[in-house]
Amino acid sequence: MEIPAALVTLVLGVVLTLVGLWVGHNVKMLPIDASSNAPVYDALFEVLFTIGTILFIGITGLILYSLVRFRRRAGDTTDGEAIEGNLPLEIVWTAIPAIVVLFVGIYSYDIYERMGGMVPLHDHMAMHQSLESNPVVSAMADSSSTSERIWGGIGQMGAADGALPVEVTAMQFAFIFHYPGPGITSGELHVPMGQTVTLRMEAKDVIHAFWVPQFRLKQDVIPGQPTMLSFTPTRAGTYPIVCAELCGPYHGGMRSNVIVHEPDAFDSWLKTNTPATVASAPGFPTA
């Protein structure tokens, strides 16, 4: 009995989709998630991975099938069929990628917005509401004469009040973290779990990049142009901070750690490290 081609195609399509969904859901490619940004990222990754798997297996299957089924047998010197094109078919395979790409674009726009990436650069309302914690604020902070432009990174929005500000200085070949409130300066970044942290970053010499894979966040640290990045750690532990922009011979060694403490542990870290003179700096939010 001859099985209709349309049916075979349908069954294959369904199987392929199921395989894609299964792979997207079950094959874990990413490190542990440790910021509120990371699960959002991982959701996007799963969608992209699923679509990618379906497309890739589908096209590979088509090539292999063609190569086997339509291979030239020994002694055959005839040609294939002279089909020069097929407009409906072309429309289909223009439309399908267009729809997929549109869907992916809209979805990742949504993700981007949830990560706080879409706040307009010169939105004064947003600036007003959350100058410190908003990652994408372009503050034309009028510090006496020069107006410095702070370009946003991407990070977690919300939690406008009580964000922990940290000043980050990158130089060949180290990161230095300064806590303006208690006046702590450290080579490692200590942060409390569950609290939004806002990094204000500037480079001293060349471009570096601040990357924490477990946070799924990266922002270039640029000389002459401060950048901001904020995030909310969600999992206690020690994670690597990696410089991700070629910055010279020791670029590969330019690493540090971010230590996410339980809130109590963070308080005691603050106490033991705060220089005595500024121990009770006013206005510094401690948990």
Binding site: Y41, F45, I111, K218
Partner: peptide
Amino acid sequence: ITGVALAQVPFDIHVHD
């Protein structure tokens, strides 16, 4: 496929460079 993924800002932020 990896290129289209890289084109998505939120995805690229993690894997850029």
